[in-house]
Simulated assay, not measured.
Amino acid sequence: MTPGLSSMTAQEPSLGACVLESTDVHTVCGTITVTACGRGIHRLDLPLDEENSCRSSPYFEPFGKVFPKGKAKAVLMADCLSQVHEAADKVTKHPHTENYLDWCRKWLQVYSYNPKQASACPQPPLHHPIFLTDSFTRRILLALRTEIPPSHTVSYGHLAAMVAAPRAARAVGMALRRNPVPLLVPCHRVVRSDNSIGGYAGRRGIHLKRLLLQHESLSHNSF
Protein backbone atom coordinates (compact mmCIF):
# COMPACT_ATOMS: atom_id res chain seq x y z
CA MET A 1 0.00 0.00 0.00
CA THR A 2 1.23 3.51 -0.77
CA PRO A 3 2.71 5.18 2.34
CA GLY A 4 0.17 7.40 4.05
CA LEU A 5 -2.78 5.98 2.12
CA SER A 6 -5.96 5.78 4.12
CA SER A 7 -7.15 2.22 4.51
CA MET A 8 -10.73 3.43 4.45
CA THR A 9 -12.69 3.92 1.26
CA ALA A 10 -15.87 5.85 0.72
CA GLN A 11 -18.54 5.66 -1.92
CA GLU A 12 -20.48 8.86 -2.41
CA PRO A 13 -23.92 8.47 -4.02
CA SER A 14 -23.43 11.60 -6.13
CA LEU A 15 -20.28 10.09 -7.63
CA GLY A 16 -21.89 6.90 -8.91
CA ALA A 17 -19.46 4.01 -8.99
CA CYS A 18 -16.44 5.99 -7.81
CA VAL A 19 -14.91 4.44 -4.70
CA LEU A 20 -12.68 7.04 -3.11
CA GLU A 21 -9.42 6.73 -1.21
CA SER A 22 -7.27 9.49 0.23
CA THR A 23 -3.74 10.21 1.37
CA ASP A 24 -1.99 13.13 3.07
CA VAL A 25 0.78 15.02 1.28
CA HIS A 26 3.24 17.44 2.91
CA THR A 27 3.55 20.55 0.73
CA VAL A 28 4.72 24.14 0.81
CA CYS A 29 1.37 25.20 2.27
CA GLY A 30 1.02 22.45 4.85
CA THR A 31 -0.57 19.01 4.77
CA ILE A 32 -3.01 18.51 1.89
CA THR A 33 -5.44 15.59 1.76
CA VAL A 34 -5.72 14.20 -1.77
CA THR A 35 -8.75 12.08 -2.69
CA ALA A 36 -8.99 9.96 -5.83
CA CYS A 37 -10.78 7.06 -7.49
CA GLY A 38 -9.53 4.55 -10.03
CA ARG A 39 -9.99 7.10 -12.82
CA GLY A 40 -8.49 10.27 -11.45
CA ILE A 41 -8.30 12.93 -8.75
CA HIS A 42 -11.47 14.13 -7.01
CA ARG A 43 -10.39 16.58 -4.33
CA LEU A 44 -7.49 18.41 -2.76
CA ASP A 45 -8.34 19.65 0.72
CA LEU A 46 -6.04 22.44 1.91
CA PRO A 47 -5.32 23.26 5.59
CA LEU A 48 -7.38 26.47 5.55
CA ASP A 49 -7.59 26.77 9.33
CA GLU A 50 -3.94 26.00 10.07
CA GLU A 51 -2.03 29.16 9.23
CA ASN A 52 1.10 28.03 11.07
CA SER A 53 1.23 24.67 9.23
CA CYS A 54 2.79 26.45 6.26
CA ARG A 55 5.92 27.16 8.27
CA SER A 56 6.47 23.65 9.63
CA SER A 57 5.77 21.50 6.56
CA PRO A 58 8.53 18.94 5.78
CA TYR A 59 8.00 19.39 2.02
CA PHE A 60 11.73 19.97 1.63
CA GLU A 61 12.30 16.20 1.95
CA PRO A 62 10.96 15.11 -1.45
CA PHE A 63 9.51 11.63 -1.78
CA GLY A 64 10.83 10.58 1.63
CA LYS A 65 14.45 10.55 0.39
CA VAL A 66 17.47 11.85 2.20
CA PHE A 67 19.83 13.35 -0.36
CA PRO A 68 23.61 13.58 0.17
CA LYS A 69 24.75 16.84 1.72
CA GLY A 70 25.73 19.33 -0.94
CA LYS A 71 23.98 17.49 -3.77
CA ALA A 72 23.39 19.97 -6.57
CA LYS A 73 19.87 21.39 -6.63
CA ALA A 74 19.61 20.77 -10.37
CA VAL A 75 20.40 17.09 -9.88
CA LEU A 76 17.85 16.82 -7.07
CA MET A 77 15.23 18.52 -9.23
CA ALA A 78 15.93 16.21 -12.16
CA ASP A 79 15.40 13.22 -9.89
CA CYS A 80 12.09 14.65 -8.66
CA LEU A 81 10.87 15.38 -12.19
CA SER A 82 11.74 11.90 -13.39
CA GLN A 83 9.66 10.43 -10.58
CA VAL A 84 6.60 12.41 -11.70
CA HIS A 85 6.99 11.07 -15.25
CA GLU A 86 7.47 7.54 -13.94
CA ALA A 87 4.30 7.85 -11.86
CA ALA A 88 2.37 9.07 -14.92
CA ASP A 89 3.66 6.16 -17.00
CA LYS A 90 2.71 3.71 -14.27
CA VAL A 91 -0.89 4.98 -14.28
CA THR A 92 -1.08 4.47 -18.05
CA LYS A 93 -0.22 0.81 -17.57
CA HIS A 94 -2.03 0.27 -14.25
CA PRO A 95 -4.87 2.81 -13.70
CA HIS A 96 -5.51 2.15 -10.00
CA THR A 97 -6.46 4.61 -7.26
CA GLU A 98 -3.15 4.24 -5.40
CA ASN A 99 -1.23 5.08 -8.57
CA TYR A 100 -3.26 8.26 -9.16
CA LEU A 101 -2.62 9.30 -5.56
CA ASP A 102 1.09 8.61 -5.97
CA TRP A 103 1.22 10.67 -9.17
CA CYS A 104 -0.55 13.60 -7.52
CA ARG A 105 1.66 13.42 -4.42
CA LYS A 106 4.84 13.57 -6.49
CA TRP A 107 3.50 16.45 -8.60
CA LEU A 108 2.63 18.42 -5.45
CA GLN A 109 6.09 17.85 -4.04
CA VAL A 110 7.70 19.15 -7.23
CA TYR A 111 5.38 22.17 -7.05
CA SER A 112 6.57 22.77 -3.50
CA TYR A 113 10.15 22.91 -4.75
CA ASN A 114 9.70 24.73 -8.03
CA PRO A 115 6.28 25.77 -9.40
CA LYS A 116 7.62 26.49 -12.88
CA GLN A 117 9.10 23.02 -13.13
CA ALA A 118 5.81 21.53 -11.95
CA SER A 119 3.93 23.34 -14.70
CA ALA A 120 6.01 21.40 -17.24
CA CYS A 121 5.20 18.06 -15.58
CA PRO A 122 2.16 15.95 -16.50
CA GLN A 123 -0.72 16.46 -14.09
CA PRO A 124 -3.00 13.60 -13.08
CA PRO A 125 -6.45 13.56 -14.72
CA LEU A 126 -9.41 14.95 -12.80
CA HIS A 127 -12.51 12.86 -12.15
CA HIS A 128 -14.66 15.03 -9.89
CA PRO A 129 -18.19 15.37 -11.36
CA ILE A 130 -17.58 19.08 -12.07
CA PHE A 131 -15.12 18.08 -14.79
CA LEU A 132 -17.27 15.38 -16.38
CA THR A 133 -20.04 17.50 -17.94
CA ASP A 134 -19.96 20.85 -19.72
CA SER A 135 -20.81 23.89 -17.61
CA PHE A 136 -19.65 27.46 -17.04
CA THR A 137 -17.78 26.32 -13.92
CA ARG A 138 -15.95 23.58 -15.83
CA ARG A 139 -14.94 25.98 -18.62
CA ILE A 140 -13.61 28.51 -16.11
CA LEU A 141 -11.63 25.92 -14.16
CA LEU A 142 -10.12 24.30 -17.24
CA ALA A 143 -9.16 27.69 -18.73
CA LEU A 144 -7.42 28.56 -15.48
CA ARG A 145 -5.66 25.20 -15.39
CA THR A 146 -4.33 25.40 -18.94
CA GLU A 147 -3.81 29.11 -19.59
CA ILE A 148 -2.46 30.75 -16.41
CA PRO A 149 1.04 29.48 -15.49
CA PRO A 150 3.01 30.09 -12.28
CA SER A 151 4.19 33.69 -11.73
CA HIS A 152 1.16 35.00 -13.64
CA THR A 153 -2.20 36.23 -12.40
CA VAL A 154 -5.51 36.95 -14.09
CA SER A 155 -8.46 39.10 -13.04
CA TYR A 156 -11.95 37.72 -12.58
CA GLY A 157 -13.16 39.75 -15.57
CA HIS A 158 -10.33 38.65 -17.84
CA LEU A 159 -10.91 35.03 -16.93
CA ALA A 160 -14.60 35.45 -17.78
CA ALA A 161 -13.64 36.92 -21.16
CA MET A 162 -11.41 33.91 -21.82
CA VAL A 163 -14.51 31.70 -21.91
CA ALA A 164 -16.50 34.20 -24.00
CA ALA A 165 -18.52 35.54 -21.06
CA PRO A 166 -17.00 39.02 -20.47
CA ARG A 167 -19.86 40.21 -18.22
CA ALA A 168 -19.68 37.21 -15.90
CA ALA A 169 -16.87 38.31 -13.56
CA ARG A 170 -19.05 37.78 -10.49
CA ALA A 171 -20.00 34.29 -11.69
CA VAL A 172 -16.28 33.51 -11.99
CA GLY A 173 -15.90 34.04 -8.26
CA MET A 174 -18.73 31.61 -7.62
CA ALA A 175 -17.13 29.06 -9.97
CA LEU A 176 -13.79 29.34 -8.19
CA ARG A 177 -15.42 28.67 -4.83
CA ARG A 178 -16.57 25.33 -6.26
CA ASN A 179 -13.05 24.33 -7.33
CA PRO A 180 -12.46 20.88 -5.77
CA VAL A 181 -8.75 20.67 -6.70
CA PRO A 182 -6.84 23.85 -5.74
CA LEU A 183 -3.22 23.92 -6.93
CA LEU A 184 -4.06 21.51 -9.77
CA VAL A 185 -6.52 24.21 -10.81
CA PRO A 186 -4.68 27.29 -9.50
CA CYS A 187 -7.51 29.54 -8.34
CA HIS A 188 -5.01 31.39 -6.14
CA ARG A 189 -3.78 33.10 -9.35
CA VAL A 190 -7.07 34.97 -9.79
CA VAL A 191 -6.97 38.50 -8.33
CA ARG A 192 -9.11 41.63 -8.51
CA SER A 193 -8.89 44.05 -11.41
CA ASP A 194 -7.03 46.56 -9.19
CA ASN A 195 -4.43 43.83 -8.51
CA SER A 196 -5.46 43.40 -4.89
CA ILE A 197 -5.50 39.84 -3.67
CA GLY A 198 -9.23 39.11 -3.58
CA GLY A 199 -10.71 36.13 -1.77
CA TYR A 200 -9.73 32.49 -1.44
CA ALA A 201 -12.07 29.80 -0.10
CA GLY A 202 -14.38 32.61 0.98
CA ARG A 203 -11.84 34.55 3.01
CA ARG A 204 -10.64 31.67 5.19
CA GLY A 205 -7.64 30.96 2.98
CA ILE A 206 -6.19 34.43 2.36
CA HIS A 207 -2.98 33.48 4.18
CA LEU A 208 -2.57 30.47 1.85
CA LYS A 209 -3.26 32.54 -1.27
CA ARG A 210 -0.65 35.09 -0.22
CA LEU A 211 1.88 32.35 0.53
CA LEU A 212 1.29 30.61 -2.82
CA LEU A 213 1.65 33.85 -4.80
CA GLN A 214 4.87 34.61 -2.97
CA HIS A 215 6.06 31.05 -3.57
CA GLU A 216 5.54 31.73 -7.27
CA SER A 217 7.50 35.02 -6.99
CA LEU A 218 4.48 37.32 -7.00
CA SER A 219 5.05 39.11 -3.71
CA HIS A 220 3.35 42.38 -4.71
CA ASN A 221 2.88 44.96 -1.97
CA SER A 222 -0.89 44.78 -2.38
CA PHE A 223 -0.79 41.07 -1.46
Rank of each mutant, 00 (worst) to 15 (best):
T27Y: 10
L218C: 07
R210Q: 08
L213D: 05
T146C: 13
P186A: 10
S193Y: 06
L213E: 06
Y111N: 14
D102F: 15
A10S: 13
P68N: 12
H127T: 11
E86F: 11
P3K: 12
L208M: 05
R39N: 06
S82N: 08
L5P: 03
Q123H: 05
E50Y: 04
S14P: 08
L213Q: 04
L44K: 00
P129V: 05
V181F: 00
N179R: 02
V185E: 02
V66D: 15
L76K: 05
Y156W: 13
H26G: 00
Q123C: 02
K93Q: 07
D102E: 05
V181M: 01
A175D: 07
L144K: 00
H220Y: 10
T33R: 11
S6C: 04
K90S: 07
A201I: 09
T33L: 11
K73G: 13
L5H: 03
V172E: 00
F63I: 11
N114H: 12
I130W: 00
E51F: 05
A78G: 15
A169D: 01
A72N: 08
R210A: 10
S193I: 10
E12S: 09
S222L: 03
F63H: 02
V163C: 05
V191Y: 03
V185R: 01
A161M: 14
V19T: 15
F223A: 01
K90Q: 15
F223P: 14
A169I: 10
A164H: 11
L144G: 02
D79T: 05
G202Y: 05
L208R: 03
T133F: 10
V28L: 03
N114V: 03
A169N: 04
L48F: 07
H128Y: 07
D45W: 13
M77V: 14
L176S: 08
L76R: 05
R138S: 10
V163F: 06
M8F: 06
A168W: 04
L212A: 09
H42Y: 12
G70S: 10
A201N: 08
H152I: 09
V84C: 07
I148Q: 07
H152P: 11
T2H: 04
E147G: 12
T33V: 12
W107R: 06
L20F: 03
S196V: 02
Y59N: 07
L20M: 15
V163H: 11
S193A: 01
G202F: 14
Q123R: 13
A161D: 15
C37W: 09
A17W: 08
G198S: 09
T27K: 07
A17K: 11
P122M: 01
P182D: 15
L184E: 00
P115I: 10
R167A: 13
P62R: 03
S217M: 03
L218T: 04
Y111R: 06
D134K: 06
G70W: 08
N52D: 13
V190F: 02
V172I: 00
L126I: 01
